[in-house]
Nucleic acid binder design. Structure first.
Length: 505
RNA sequence: GCCCCCAUCGUCUAGAGGACUAGGAUGUCAGCCUUUCAAGCUGAAGACAGGGGUUCGAAUCCCCUUGGGGGCACCA
């Protein structure tokens, strides 16, 4: 059997969508599984919707996910060009060919005429659709219109009767009545092709063996089928992937950012996931599990494992809601599996941005390395790390003094605890975790307080947060001087508040 | 409106007529651990959309209903 050749054919009308990424991923997996080629083709025939920065985003996002292409932009290949905008003569040639062989015809209708036709159809409650008026033009009528210099499009002359049955590798046989089909436009009046023509011509010329794409394309397969037949070409294998639905399960995944009832933002572009601190390997793993599963048991697996196991026959046809909470969990799993150095490398750009610090300074900061393992098991997104580390670089602000007072603890106890902690820590010779722990535990016992009653106020005083990495390593990282300074500051605020806020405390 | 596709826990899924008392994961809840929060460990609740067939036997096959999704452009 000939080598497998699959393609991902995005349109540069927007950033790479998560659903598009899944389509690309499945194609890529199949190419790698079969040892075939994965081709990237840019379908830029819609000049109205073209967005200049989207092409770069698509390339960047695919590379970020590790979906490398064997032929396509910036890579080349033997079947180029890979931009449809550079293949216009090819489409025009084949459009002419179809007209000459009676499979297509020139239609001279203007947009106004078509609008009027639809209006009449609506009024008469007839079926809406092109009535093929130009299909039946006599040679004389045609010549007259050409002589007038009227603009024309090329339309496919679909059979009026009969039906098409084609096979879908995921869904089986699907039948459409020809009578329901439109004489679709193949070549626009500006000489550019529509999707239908360009797609069929390119897939054939590029020797594509399998078409895997979103199932919103199913309805246009009959048209393509007729095109292949008119050309006398062998159609590839079709496999229509289930669409990804919104996390709510309602409707196809939005094209733009969506918001959950609880206010959480569900990103839809790959770049948004990257910005939020998702790992590419987590996205890869996650996406592969929508509409396909490795074995029904294993959730976490690497790309080699997925490549080995992937097959079109394992793709199941039903639409799936994007399980956003599962992705978050999975990202946490991948973060926890990272080697410390790797984690630091990946974290640095996010920290640098959040804390406005140069990356170099972060990379050489030993205190960061000390805290890193503890941050690692507490974050599910790379962007969450800053909140667990910022007190290393900025003096904490305690907005709410109540945060200093644990439950079942009096302000007096806290004041006593902080005050004694300062004394004990200032005179501590050995600023190690073990020594700090021993000191503070003994102090708590001495004061007759539970560990938390003493530790929690210290945590808040030193980090400004109720939630932070474990206390002793945190104090070690922050350093004796800063620790004691912050404890004193907290104590002072507490003393100060006795007069002004006593009632509320 | 017409056409097409789809249908297992809230969600992602396993399930190719008997191995199903329907498995895994996530999420939720409870407990343990514990200096906070996580992580980890235990445990619990939670699904074959409904109705007809076919068959000795149906989550699995067929039909209908219902529900969901998609398509009907000189967009892809």
């Amino acid at each position: 059997m000939a080598q497998t050749r699959v393609r991902f054919a995005p349109s540069p009308t927007g950033y790479l969508h998560i659903g598009g990424a899944r389509t690309a991923l499945f194609n890529w997996l199949y190419a790698r599984h079969t040892g075939g080629q994965f081709i990237l083709r840019i379908e830029d025939t819609d000049r109205k919707r073209f967005q200049a920065d989207s092409l770069q985003d698509i390339l960047d996002s695919l590379r970020w996910l590790g979906l490398d292409w064997d032929e396509g932009p910036e890579v080349g290949g033997d079947y180029g060009p890979y931009f449809q905008s550079e293949r216009l003569e090819i489409y025009q040639h084949w459009a002419d060919w179809l007209v000459e062989h009676g499979h297509a015809y020139r239609c001279y209708c203007t947009a106004e005429e078509l609008a009027e036709m639809r209006e009449q159809q609506r009024a008469a409650k007839q079926k809406i659709g092109y009535d093929r008026r130009c299909r039946w033009l006599t040679p004389e009528e045609r010549a007259a219109r050409e002589a007038e210099g009227r603009a024309w499009v090329v339309r496919l002359a679909v059979p009026l009767e009969g039906s098409v049955t084609f096979h879908d590798a995921i869904r089986g046989d699907i039948t459409y009545e020809n009578a329901l089909l439109q004489d679709a436009v193949l070549l626009k009046s500006d000489g550019w092709p529509t999707y239908h023509l360009a797609n069929v011509v390119d897939d054939h010329l590029m020797r594509i063996t399998h078409i895997m794409r979103g199932d919103e394309w199913i309805a246009s397969v009959p048209l393509h089928w007729h095109l292949y037949r008119a050309f006398g070409w062998e159609p590839p294998v079709w496999a229509h992937l289930p669409v990804i639905l919104n996390p709510s399960g309602k409707g196809k995944m939005s094209k733009r950012e969506i918001r959950r009832p609880d206010g959480a933002v569900i990103p839809v572009y790959v770049r948004q996931y990257r910005e939020m601190g998702y790992l590419p390997e987590a996205i890869f793993n996650f996406l592969s599990g929508i509409g396909w599963s490795l074995d029904g048991e294993t959730e976490i697996y690497d790309r080699e494992t997925a490549i080995r196991a992937f097959d079109i026959s394992g793709v199941h046809p039903s639409p799936a809601a994007l399980p956003a909470d599962k992705l978050l969990w999975m990202n946490g799993v991948y973060i926890r599996e990272l080697e410390p150095d790797d984690l630091l490398q990946r974290l640095t750009p996010y920290l640098s941005q959040a804390l406005s610090l140069p990356e170099a300074r972060l990379l050489e900061d030993e205190r960061l390395r000390l805290l890193l393992p503890h941050v690692q098991e507490r974050i599910k997104l790379l962007t969450e790390a800053a909140d667990l580390l910022d007190y290393l670089y900025i003096e904490p602000v305690i907005d709410d003094l109540k945060a200093l007072i644990p439950r079942k603890t009096t302000p007096e106890q806290v004041r006593e605890g902080l005050s004694r902690a300062i004394q004990a820590l200032e005179s501590l010779d050995d600023w190690s975790e073990a020594a700090i722990e021993k000191t503070l535990r003994e102090l708590a016992a001495d004061l007759g307080m539970k560990a938390g009653q003493l530790f929690n106020p210290i945590r808040v005083a030193v980090t400004g947060k109720r939630v932070a990495p474990p206390l002793f390593v945190t104090l070690r990282a922050v350093g004796r001087e800063a620790t004691c300074r912050r404890l004193r500051a907290a104590l002072a605020r507490l003393d100060n508040s006795v007069h002004t806020e006593q009632a509320s405390l």
